[in-house]
């Protein structure tokens, strides 16, 4: 647990690309919002693992958003129902219904479609907001935080030693 937290802080405080962290948050959000056992989630995991997406933030975002999804399911259900019953889209849905890949993706499930649609709608804003927050954190907030008495106290703990050890490492999936 300490290791995981240390990795997160290291990624946040290191020279890791803000885009890498932002993509981790955005993709983790989509993975968390949508039902786990879905075909598109395999694609998300493939993207996260294959490209230089920060996996710590990806899993953190996934965990947080999975919790949020329980509260947001009625919204996803409403959006999915609205889309699937929209008369203008009926031709598309009937065509997809005959495609094996679309059926495997469970496009006709209200929560699945609703959560994917909401995630796609929010992924770009989340991406840019996350990058903006990370960049500003590093340039303005990081140094002020380090001067705080609480941080000074933390620096004398075992956690800080672990953090220092992780910071000394190179490579791995987080960079």
């Amino acid at each position: 647990m300490l290791g995981m937290l240390a990795k997160l802080l290291k990624a946040l405080n290191s020279e890791t690309s803000p885009w890498s962290l932002a993509w981790g948050i955005a993709l983790g959000m989509m993975l968390g919002f949508t039902p786990l056992l879905s075909l598109h989630n395999i694609v998300l995991v493939l993207i996260a693992f294959t490209f230089r997406v920060n996996l710590s933030f990806f899993f953190l975002s996934f965990a947080v958003c999975s919790g949020l999804a329980y509260a947001l399911d009625p919204l996803f259900d409403f959006v999915g129902e609205w889309l699937l019953t929209a008369s203008s889209l009926q031709g598309l849905w009937f065509a997809l219904y005959e495609l094996p890949l679309a059926r495997l993706a469970q496009f006709n499930h209200t929560i699945t479609l609703g959560s994917v649609a909401v995630s796609l709608l929010f992924i770009v804003p989340v991406l840019f907001i996350a990058r903006f927050v990370i960049v500003n954190y590093r340039s303005r907030i990081q140094k002020r935080i380090e001067k705080l008495p609480l941080v000074q106290l933390i620096k004398g703990t075992k956690f800080w030693a672990t953090y220092q050890k992780v910071s000394g490492l190179r490579g791995g999936f987080s960079s």
Binding site: G80, E81, W93, F94, Y97, N108, H109, I111
Partner: peptide
Amino acid sequence: WEGRYIEFDG
């Protein structure tokens, strides 16, 4: 169970 499947059976 958690939403529903809508059939588009042609």
